[in-house]
Design a protein around this nucleic acid. Structure first.
Lengths: 354, 354
DNA sequence: CTGTTAGCGCCTTCAA
DNA sequence: TTGAAGGCGCTAACAG
C-alpha cells in the first residue's frame, strides 16, 4: 500500500473542534466522554461543532494516552499438516470459539483483532505473535502447537490465555477440553447399549495433542470392557479422506469390526460415505461415531453420534479469564478443563428421535 | 476492567533500549526496521539489548507516528430479525467472507479487527461504526441494512467497501452478488431437465434486499417458461423452521406442487426434513432446492441442489478494493457484481454423481 | 466549570 | 553513520 497519491483525507482533530467551538481541548474531551461537569450551553455548542465537523476521536491516540487498547487479539495457530481438511473443518472450530469470545466481550463492547494466517516472508511465528501482542491488551491463542517456553515468555509481556484441545502449559492460563470423559461415555454406549464388541479406531494426526488424548482415552475405555476388544485401527489426519481410507482397510481386513470410532467428525463423515458406497448399512451393519460435534453432524443422514466439544464455552471462558488477568495481572494462573460430552444421535444405532 | 491492582506490567520502550545500548532512539528505530545504514557493530549491540529486554514496538504508538493503523475492520451489521436462524446460518456466511478477506490481506500481513455484536447501552449503530472506523485504515461492512446516507457519510471519513447481497449504494464501493443469473439457471433446470411444472416458492424476510431480489428473479424466470407456473408460495425468514411451516401449507394445499424452491439453504433443509417426516420422497415425489450453498449442503441426504453464493470471492474482492482505495483515496467508486451460479446435486432429481 | 500543560511511545526530518 | 528534537491526537492531572 502506497502513501496515497489521491487527495489527502484529513480527519478533524480534537484541536479543530476546540478552536471552532472556542473552548479548550480538555472541555471537548469532557463533552465527548460525558464526564466532568460542563455547562449545558457549552456542551451543546461543542456537540454542534463535533456534528458539523464529523469529528471522531482517533483510536490510536486514545490507546496511547490511556495506555489501553481496548482490543483483545485472537490468534489461531495453524500448525496441522496443510493437507488436513482445515479448509472446511478449521472454520467451524474457530468460528464457534469466536462466538464465545464475542459473547464474553459483549458487555465491554471491545472488538476482536483477528490474526490472519501468518504471512510468508515476515519472520517466524513468534515474531508474528509479538507483533500481534503489541496491538492488543491481551491475547487468546488457539491450538497448542507453539512451544510452551515461548508462550510463557510472551505471557510475561502481555496477558495470554491458551485455548487448547489438551495441552497444559505451566505458568500461563489455559482453558482446555477434557476428552476422556466423553470418550468413555461413547465407548460404553457402543458396547453396553448396542452390544458392539469389535471396535475399530481411526486416529488423528500424531502431532496433535488432542488426537493423542482421544486415542489414549479410547484404548483406556475399551480396556475397561472385558466383552469388547480392538478390531483394528487406522492412521488418519482428521480429514474426510482419512475416513475413506480407513474404510478401505476395514473392508479388506480379515475380521470385520461392528463399530468404527473416528477421532473427529470429518473422518466419520468420510467413513460413512465410503461405507455406504460399498453397500454397508450404517448403523445397521456398522456403527460409526465422530468427535467434535461440528454442527453439521446433526443434519447428516444418519445424524452423527459424536462427542461434543464445548468450543463456544471454551472461547467464552478463555476470554473471561483473559479479561480478569488484564484487570489484575497478579492473579494466580489457572487451568480450566471443560469436559466433552456424549451426543447420542443415530449413527451409533439409536433410533431416530423424530 | 479496573486499573490493575496487581503488579504493573511495564514493557520496555524504545528509550529503554536506546539507553541500554548507548545509542539514540533513532538508531534503535533504524535497526528495528532494517533501514537507513547502521554500522554492523552498532546493529548487533542494539539487537542484543532488544533481545535481552524483550522489546516490541508498541502498536498504538506506531500507528500514531506513521498515521496508519495497518488494520482493516470487518463489521457484520446484524439487522435481520433476531429469531432468524443466524445463530447457525449467519456463521457460515460471515465465516466464508472472512476467509476471503484474510486471503486478500495475506500479502500485507495485516490483521482484521472484527466488530462484535453491537453492545446494548452504548449509542446507536452509527456511533458504533464510527468508533470502529477510528481504529482502522478501512472498513468492510457486510449486509446492506444501514441507511445509504449514513454509509456515504462514513465513507467520507474512512475508506469503506460494502459487501452486500443485493444493495447498491451510490458514492461508495460495493461488492454484491447477482442472484438473478443463478436463479434463472435453477428454474430452467427444474423445468427443462426434470419436467417440473408446478413450482412453489418459499420466500425470505421481506426486509432483506437479497430475499427480494431472489423472489423477483424467480418469478421472472418462471414467467419465461410457458409450460410451468407458480403453484403457490409461503412467507419465510431464511430459517429451517420456515421450510417446515411451508411444507405444512403445501401439504394442505388443494394442488400439490412438484418442486419447492426455497429462498435459502436453511429453509430447504427444514422443508426436506418435514417432507420426509410426512412420507413424501425427495426428490422422487418433489424436488427441493436451496440458495446460498452453505457448505453443509453437499453432505445432506439428498445432497442439496442450490445456487452458490461466492462469499469467499466476495470477501476477497471487497478487501482488494478497500486496499486499493486506502492506497489511493481518489479512485472512482465502483460496484462489482459477482454472479451466483447453479450447483446441481441431487435434491432436484439429478442422479448421484458417486 | 474550564484552561494549561505534560506526557503516552514512536517516527522522521534535519543537522552534525 | 548517528543524534537531537518536534510532532502524531488525546488524556489527565493540576491550576484557576
Amino acid at each position: 500500500v502506497e502513501p496515497s497519491p489521491g487527495q489527502a483525507r484529513v480527519s478533524p482533530t480534537l484541536y479543530d473542534v476546540a478552536r471552532e467551538a472556542g473552548v479548550s481541548t480538555a472541555t471537548v474531551s469532557r463533552v465527548v466522554h460525558g464526564q466532568g461537569s460542563v455547562r449545558p450551553a457549552t456542551t451543546r455548542r461543542v456537540l454542534e461543532v463535533i456534528e458539523a465537523l464529523g469529528y471522531v476521536p482517533d483510536g490510536a491516540a486514545q490507546s496511547m494516552a490511556r495506555r489501553r487498547k481496548e482490543v483483545i487479539g485472537l490468534v489461531p495457530i495453524q500448525a496441522r499438516s496443510p493437507d488436513t481438511d482445515v479448509e472446511r473443518m478449521g472454520l467451524v472450530f474457530t468460528e464457534e470459539v469466536l462466538r464465545g469470545v464475542e459473547s464474553a466481550l459483549l458487555p465491554l463492547g471491545w472488538p476482536i483483532l483477528l490474526a490472519g494466517p501468518r504471512p510468508a516472508g515476515q519472520g517466524d511465528a513468534y515474531q508474528w505473535l509479538q507483533r500481534m501482542s503489541a496491538k492488543v491488551d491481551g491475547l487468546l491463542i488457539t491450538e497448542g502447537f507453539e512451544p510452551a517456553g515461548r508462550l510463557a515468555r510472551l505471557a510475561a509481556r502481555v496477558p495470554v490465555v491458551l485455548i487448547a484441545g489438551a495441552t497444559d502449559v505451566p505458568g500461563i492460563d489455559v482453558v482446555a477440553t477434557d476428552n476422556r470423559a466423553g470418550m468413555r461415555e461413547l465407548v460404553s454406549h457402543l458396547i453396553k447399549v448396542h452390544g458392539r464388541s469389535r471396535l475399530w479406531y481411526v486416529d488423528g494426526p500424531p502431532d496433535a495433542p488432542d488426537a493423542r488424548e482421544r486415542r489414549g482415552a479410547f484404548l483406556d475405555a475399551l480396556g475397561r470392557h472385558p466383552g469388547a476388544r480392538l478390531a483394528g485401527g487406522s492412521a488418519g489426519r482428521f480429514a474426510a479422506l482419512s475416513g475413506q481410507h480407513a474404510v478401505r482397510e476395514i473392508l479388506a481386513a480379515p475380521e470385520r469390526p461392528d463399530a468404527v470410532v473416528c477421532a473427529n467428525d470429518q473422518t466419520a463423515i468420510g467413513a460413512i460415505r465410503e461405507l455406504r458406497a460399498a453397500g454397508t448399512r450404517v448403523p445397521e451393519d456398522m456403527s460409526v461415531t465422530g468427535f467434535d460435534d461440528a454442527y453439521l453432524g446433526a443434519l447428516l443422514s444418519p445424524p452423527l453420534t459424536t462427542v461434543h466439544q464445548p468450543m463456544r464455552r471454551l472461547g467464552e471462558r478463555a476470554c473471561s479469564l483473559l479479561l480478569d488477568r488484564i484487570a489484575d495481572p497478579g492473579l494466580p494462573h489457572v487451568t480450566e478443563r471443560l469436559s466433552a460430552t456424549l451426543v447420542v444421535r443415530e449413527s451409533c444405532g439409536c433410533p431416530s428421535v423424530v
